[in-house]
Design a protein around this nucleic acid. Structure first.
Lengths: 153, 153
DNA sequence: TGAATATAGATCGTGTACGATCTAATCGCA
DNA sequence: TGCGATTAGATCGTACACGATCTATATTCA
């Protein structure tokens, strides 16, 4: 009897869960990134913030939060660490003192060159063709959007 | 000019990264799970441990760690919380005093009934057909295994 | 057999993550 | 115009997550 017969009636294990596939793959990515980012002195979420700022400098905390789906309670301490590292500045927007604008320092902008190699190493570790990556990324993003829509209500 | 032309030469944003798709989808799952698991008094990683024990009771800390890809430094405090909640017991194995065996209490085993509804709610939020879920899960697991293999070396 | 080694968990320090709440600044509208 | 409501970040408490390290137990082999 094939396992597909037995599975629905037996107790599901974590292996069967789509959420666990995502969860554990996130950890696996982290494991690959860790040694590469250690070279840069960054953690993975810090790296994401830097990527966002390299793509577009001078964003507010809220804009970064919207992009990364992170709350200010997560970002504020993280950004303070990046500031302490001398990679960016945090300054209240004179136009709207509620907002804090993030700007790369020369050191922060310069780190981009050192980070060039990271993408390639990850691409290698992923072990998929460019087309496969695009396809899989699209499927996952669609899943994410479904989940976020469901979480709203 | 289509964006596919502009992208490779312009600065990649977080949106382009496969790792970020995974990372943010993990958070999205958490957002859907949170209210459901609050009913059970569990966090998401705690839920995973319970699923693993519902599938097979009486596992060691190391076995659970292997299944969930988590270290003892993560599991020990988490398991102590589950013990405090009265859902499981932690006892040194008399055969090998280095190992700690985890056993569901009646309360822990009974919680499985209350957790029955969770899977369905998640399935709805995922918004994909059964076949699509199986396919996507397989693709992601393959990705994870590639990453873990790359991380070894 | 007994000392060197290996293994299983536990502990500690650092850094996410988020909900709840707080403060300060801005907005909306009577 | 000025006061209530909204908005942007910051703070606090709880809970992961992991690397480095520690302790206790088990294994190995000279």
């Amino acid at each position: 009897m094939p396992p597909s017969d037995a599975k629905p009636t037996s107790r599901p294990d974590v292996t069967d869960l789509l959420c666990f596939a995502i969860y554990s793959t996130g950890h696996a990515f982290n494991r690959v990134y860790k040694p590469l980012l250690d070279e840069l002195g960054l953690t993975y979420p810090q790296y994401l913030v830097m990527v966002a700022l390299w793509a577009a400098d001078d964003q507010t905390v809220g804009e970064i939060g919207d992009r990364l789906f992170l709350e200010s309670s997560t970002l504020t301490p993280l950004l303070k660490r990046l500031e302490t590292l001398g990679l960016l500045t945090r300054r209240r927007d004179p136009e709207d003192e509620r907002q804090v604008r993030l700007r790369l320092t020369d050191k922060g902008a310069g780190l981009r060159k050192k980070a060039r190699g990271v993408g390639g190493c990850i691409g290698e570790a992923v072990g998929l063709s460019g087309d496969a990556v695009v396809k899989l990324r699209g499927d996952i993003i669609r899943l994410r959007d479904n989940l976020l829509k469901a979480a709203e209500t």
